[in-house]
Design a protein around this nucleic acid. Structure first.
Lengths: 344, 344
DNA sequence: CTGTTAGCGCCTTCAG
DNA sequence: CTGAAGGCGCTAACAG
C-alpha cells in the first residue's frame, strides 16, 4: 500500500508494464497478440491483465486511431415495430463486426435531429444510419458528415436533395402490387390513406397506387387520397373523419402502413362495418398485429431486420473504403394476402 | 495550400488558436463559455469555429475528464415492444441530460452478454442499464462494473445474488390482482403459462398466481402451471401441447406476458374454442396487440417507458454521487380488464 | 483576462 | 524481440 496506491483508478498498460518490468509498448503489443513478442512475455502480460481485470481503454485507443468503432443511428421513434426490428438488424451485424451502436430518436423533430447530429459528430462516430424525421426538409446537417468523409446511409425514409447511399424497399412496386391485387379482387373504388408527403416512401406508395389505378383504367379521385400519419391513432382519426364526411364509403382502402390499417379496421368494426364485405383493407409492413386482427390483414412484407443488416453492410464497406460510390439498395417486397382483402 | 494542408483532417482547437494567434486554452475556454474570457475573443473564436464546422472531439475530452457521458444498455432483444418502449424512455431522459446511449442485445445468450460487458467496460460507459438474459445465472460480469464504481441498474428482469439498484414492477401483486379478478369472475380452474424460471419476474408472477389461489382456497394443480417462453410462438406451442394432452381444459389461463397470451388465444380460436366462454385468458404487459385481438385481452399495465425513465434517473443520481445507497424502484401495476376475461 | 505546461491511456515509428 | 519517445485533441492547474 504505497502512497501512490490510488485504489480507485483503472488499471492501465503502464501498471502492468511496471509490475512486469517491461515497457508499455511491450504490454501493448502483447495484448494485441503481436507476433514479435516472446511467448513467455505474452503469457505473463495476459495473466496479469486478467488478474487485474484490465480492460483496454477504447477511448484512448480511439483518440490515437481516429476510429471509434461506433456507428450512430437516428430513427424517428424507437418503439415502432419497424424501427426496433431494423435496429435489431443493425445491432446484430454491428456487434459481429466489432462495432458499437449509439441510438437516438428524433421524435419526428427537425431541431432534435440536428442537435443529435452535432452530438454524433462530436462522438466521432465512424458512420451514420438514418431514417429522417418527417419534419426534415433541409439536409445540411447530414452534409456535414459527408464533408468530413463520414459515410451516411439513409434507410426507409430517404431524403431529397442529398446524394448518399440508402437502403429502402421498392415502395412503388409494393404499393402497385397490393392495389393491383385489390383491383383483381374486383374492388373498383379504392381509397388510400397516405403518409406525410415530405417522406419519400409515402410519396412512392401514392405513386404506386395511382399507377395501378391508371393501368387498370380506373379514375383517380382526389377525395379518396387522404393524408394521414403513420400511427394507429392517425388511422382511427382519419377513419372517423371519413365516416363522418359526405364522401361515399370506398369499396377498399389501402393504408400507408399497418398501424394505420389497424386503426382503420378497429374503427370500421366499431361502426359495425364488415371487413372485407363492406370495405376491404390492405396495409404495408407486415406488423405482428396484422395476423392478430380479425380478419387478418393483407399487407406488404418489408424486411425490416434485413434492411438494418444491409445498411450496416454498406456502411462498413464505405468505412473500410471498399466501396466509394453511392449504393442504392432496394429490397423487393412481397405481397402477403390475407382475408381482409379477399372478396367472398 | 501550404504543404501542411492536410485537407481531410478535422479542425481542432489548435487550428483555431493558430489562426487567431491565441493559445489553445483560450479557445477551449471560449468555447465552453468560460466567464473569464473577453467578449471579443469569445466572439471571434465562436465565429471561426462555426465557419470551420468545428465539433469538439468528445473522445479527447472524455480521455481527460474520465467521463464519456455515455450509458450502456443491454436487453435480451430489441424488437419486443416492452424493451423498445423502455429504451425509448431511457433514450429520452438520457438525451435531455446530455448522455448518449449505446444499445446492445444479448439475444438471450449468456456468452454474448458477457462479451458485451467487456466491450462496454472498454468503452468506459458511465453507467449500465440491464435486463439480463434468461440464460444468465452467474453475475460476475456485472460485478466488474460495481468494483470499478460504475453504477449498474437492473430493470424488469432482476438477477439473484447481486446487490445493485433496480427498476421493476410489482409482478407479484400484478399477477395476484389479475388472478383474483379471474376468480371473482367465477373461474375456478385457472392455469398459468409461466416464463423461464431463472427470470425473477416470471417467478414473482407465479408466486402471485399461487397466493391468489391459496387465499381463495382453490387448489394448486401442478399440471396447470406450464413452463413457456416469452414469445407468441411459445404461447402457440404451449397451447397446442395443452390441447393435445390429456389435461382437462382449464376454465381460464393467465399467461406470463401478452405475446404468449396472444399466441394462446390465436390457437384457441383456431381450434374453434370461444374466449372467454370456453376459456378465459389474461396476460401481462398491455402490448399494443391486446386491444387488437378479438376479444380484447385483459392484462396488467406495465409502464415500460416510465421504467426506462426511472432507470436513467436512478443511474444519473448514482453517477453524480447524489445517491450512494441501493435503490429498489418498484412501479405499481394497473389491471386492465377487457372482454377476454369477463364471464358473460 | 490569457498563456504555459503537463498530462489522460494508448499506439506506432524508429532505434537498438 | 524490446524500449524510448512523441503525439492523438482536449483540459485544468498554475502562473502571470
Amino acid at each position: 500500500m504505497a502512497k501512490t496506491d490510488n485504489s480507485n483508478r483503472e488499471v492501465t498498460i503502464s501498471d502492468i508494464a511496471r509490475e512486469l518490468s517491461v515497457s508499455k509498448s511491450t504490454v501493448s503489443r502483447a495484448l494485441q497478440g503481436h507476433h514479435s513478442i516472446g511467448d513467455i512475455t505474452k503469457q505473463a502480460v495476459r495473466e496479469l491483465a486478467a488478474k487485474y481485470n484490465y480492460h483496454p481503454n477504447a477511448i484512448a485507443s480511439s483518440l490515437f486511431k481516429k476510429s471509434t468503432k461506433t456507428i450512430g443511428v437516428i430513427v424517428p421513434i424507437l418503439s415502432h415495430y419497424f424501427f426496433s426490428t431494423a435496429i435489431a438488424g443493425i445491432e446484430e451485424l454491428a456487434y459481429k463486426s466489432g462495432y458499437k451502436v449509439i441510438i437516438c430518436q428524433s421524435n419526428e423533430s427537425y431541431e432534435r435531429e440536428v442537435d443529435i447530429t452535432r452530438t454524433l459528430l462530436s462522438a466521432k462516430v465512424d458512420g451514420l444510419i438514418v431514417s429522417v424525421s418527417r419534419k426534415t426538409e433541409d439536409m445540411e446537417h447530414f452534409n456535414l458528415f459527408l464533408k468530413k468523409n463520414i459515410p451516411v446511409i439513409f434507410f426507409d425514409r430517404l431524403p431529397d436533395g442529398i446524394e448518399s447511399s440508402s437502403v429502402s424497399v421498392d415502395d412503388f412496386s409494393g404499393a402497385y402490387k397490393i392495389v393491383e391485387h385489390l383491383i383483381q379482387q374486383g374492388y373498383r373504388r379504392i381509397a388510400h390513406f397516405t403518409g406525410p408527403q415530405n417522406v419519400t416512401n409515402a410519396q412512392n406508395r401514392i405513386r404506386g397506387y395511382i399507377k395501378a389505378l391508371t393501368d387498370y383504367q380506373l379514375p383517380i379521385e382526389e377525395e379518396l387520397i387522404i393524408e394521414c400519419g403513420f400511427e394507429r391513432s392517425h388511422g382511427i382519426e382519419t377513419a372517423e373523419n371519413l365516416l363522418a364526411s359526405s364522401i361515399e364509403l370506398p369499396e377498399a382502402i389501402f393504408a400507408v402502413c399497418d398501424p394505420v390499417a389497424i386503426g382503420l379496421m378497429l374503427t370500421l368494426k366499431k361502426h359495425g362495418l364488415k371487413i372485407p364485405q363492406d370495405v376491404a383493407v390492405a396495409g404495408f409492413n407486415d406488423d405482428p398485429t396484422a395476423t392478430v386482427i380479425d380478419p387478418p390483414l393483407t399487407t406488404v412484407i418489408q424486411p425490416a431486420f434485413e434492411m438494418g443488416v444491409s445498411a450496416v453492410e454498406i456502411l462498413l464497406d464505405q468505412i473500410n473504403g471498399n466501396v466509394k460510390s453511392i449504393v442504392k439498395n432496394v429490397h423487393s417486397t412481397d405481397l402477403q394476402i390475407r382475408k381482409s382483402s379477399i372478396k367472398s
